[in-house]
Nucleic acid binder design. Structure first.
Lengths: 229, 229
DNA sequence: CATTATTGATAGTATTACTATTATATTTGC
DNA sequence: GCAAATATAATAGTAATACTATCAATAATG
């Protein structure tokens, strides 16, 4: 995919941050530094104190941007989904056939390692690994319902909604479009993680992108109505 | 399902704990107390200090059983998968038809709320909710590979292996049995969580167990070979 | 140039995640 | 029935985490 025009900015829900990290140098360093560190040490070991040292700033300064590290992670994940949604729109522009739209969406959502488009201060390869390993932790909490009311999962929901629409275009009879989409997205992430760290929980065949093949097949078979058989 | 004979004990890999919690009253209180508390407050807020207060013991005493709360969670999750595996064996005993075996397995793995069989000191309903909300956190860590070498994910792997076997019996040509099984198990958990807390990410139809129906359908369509169509 | 906003430096608090020590039960072996 | 071993409780202590508060220095803006 081509580089995003530099005048476009991906806007994340204002309520995630205290002060927009896009609005200052320090803010951008917080984003790029946290991506480096979370990817390297994992979200549990990551702290604002360590981030402060890494970007030559202080804990207190970072707290002026984000209430806590959970909100920072939410910011990164929302940014990622906005970015994917943007790319999806681009990918299906001018395509009429709903099946082809859906096929492309699945490829985007299950892809292995995206190239780093060097989009500003965000390293996409690292961010993608973070999404795989850490994104479930944003919602698997006791605060999920309140945070949902605050709109902190909006980007993901919007993407799921869009792809669910393609599914309904392909087969309007299919009863579970959202379930299918969220199964594919989260499933593909887990399978990527398994492939890297717990390979006996998945199947990697030589010379193919098994995860993409598996989910393409799964979705289109699921959408076949009985009459087609 | 009938109550498990009381002489049967589900044994969890020895390396998870420092001292077997099944071996003493305190140990059993640690298990039942932690299930209550993790279900109620979530794993992040749960601490050994709080657990000590809850079961009228001390932090230091609990540390003699488990190195840390992560290991305790691993214990609970492994116990759960051993229990499910045991029930699966029971469910398919004397059944010949591989399709029926698989159908039953999927029902077991995607079921909503199991009845509490009052198995000793373990509240299964609460444990099931814990598995749904917390089990991914056992492996989404930087230590996953070392812990895997220690055998800390053995129970889950064993279950996935068993059900993958049923899949291969139904369709020996199918290339991704492990991927399909782990997608179904983890997917069903996430869908249960979504249904409870983020309903726009799933589809719940009135008067049916949509999650079970969805995954039954998904699996059997995925396993249909082209010749059957 | 004065005001305001932003950052850095420093310090402080409550809680967490442990480890260590000692006294007191409790169990078990003989 | 008693000594020895073991398990638990009570207490204390440490380093790190997750913040909050204060104030001075610097930069941006009107």
């Amino acid at each position: 995919m081509e580089v995003l025009p530099s005048h476009i900015q991906l806007n994340v829900n204002q309520r995630i941050f205290l002060k927009n990290p896009e609005s200052s140098d320090l803010g951008k360093k917080i984003i790029s530094g946290s991506i480096d560190m979370i990817d390297e040490m994992g979200f549990e070991s990551f702290t604002f104190r360590k981030l402060g040292q890494h970007i030559q700033s202080t804990e207190a300064s970072i707290y002026r941007y984000f209430e806590n590290k959970h909100r920072l992670l939410l910011y990164l994940i929302n940014w990622y989904w906005n970015w994917i949604d943007f790319r999806l729109i681009y990918l299906i522009a001018n395509i009429e056939d709903p099946t082809e739209k859906l096929r492309r969406a699945i490829t985007l959502l299950t892809q292995s390692n995206e190239v780093d488009n060097n989009f500003q201060h965000v390293n996409e390869i690292k961010l993608h690994r973070i999404v795989i390993a850490e994104s479930s932790k944003t919602y698997l909490t006791k605060e999920v319902e309140e945070e949902n009311k605050e709109g902190l999962f909006k980007s993901f929901k919007q993407l799921v909604e869009r792809v669910s629409g393609f599914i309904s275009d392909v087969n309007p009879e299919f009863k579970y479009p959202h379930m299918l989409v969220s199964t594919v997205i989260e499933g593909a992430h887990h399978q990527r993680f398994f492939a890297a760290h717990l390979p006996m929980l998945t199947d990697q065949l030589h010379g193919e992108d098994s995860i993409n093949n598996f989910y393409q097949d799964l979705v289109f078979k699921a959408l076949k109505s009985k009459d087609d058989e």
